[in-house]
Simulated assay, not measured.
Amino acid sequence: MEIPKLTTRIKSAMDGWFALEVLELPDLVVHTRSFEDIRETDRAAAGALMGQPPGEFDVDVEL
């Protein structure tokens, strides 16, 4: 089974927060405080939205 791929873009960064958009899931907007946490935060949010374990996603971050 192929791991679903998610592409994330940083929508904005201010006041110590990153707002992220996931291209494959346009209704999903994710917020995180750390650049290093973007992939993990996206996995958790996508998993909750789609009813799948967070580890089931491969996340690519576009700057």
Rank of each mutant, 00 (worst) to 15 (best):
E2G: 09
T8F: 04
L20N: 02
H31M: 13
L20I: 05
S34L: 13
I10W: 01
G55E: 14
H31Q: 08
R39M: 01
V59W: 03
D42I: 13
L25I: 15
T41V: 06
D15S: 04
I3G: 07
D60I: 04
L23G: 02
D58W: 09
I3Q: 12
L6Y: 10
L49R: 12
E40D: 14
V30D: 05
K5S: 15
E2V: 12
E2D: 15
V59C: 11
R43F: 07
D37N: 11
E24A: 06
V59T: 03
V59A: 03
M14F: 09
D15G: 09
T41D: 08
F18A: 06
A19V: 06
V29S: 08
G16C: 02
L6E: 04
G16A: 06
L63V: 02
F57C: 05
M1F: 12
P26W: 13
G16E: 00
L6N: 11
E2N: 12
A19H: 02
M14A: 07
F35H: 14
L25F: 04
M1T: 09
G47D: 13
L23K: 15
M1A: 14
R33L: 05
R33G: 14
D27I: 02
T41F: 01
T41L: 05
P53W: 07
A13Y: 00
M1L: 07
R9A: 14
P4G: 10
V30R: 06
E56C: 11
V22C: 07
A46K: 06
T41E: 08
E40V: 01
R9Y: 13
A13F: 01
V29K: 09
I38C: 08
D60Q: 14
G51E: 13
E36L: 10
P53S: 04
S12M: 10
V30A: 00
E36K: 15
E62M: 05
G51D: 13
E36C: 03
L23Y: 10
R9H: 12
V59L: 08
D15P: 01
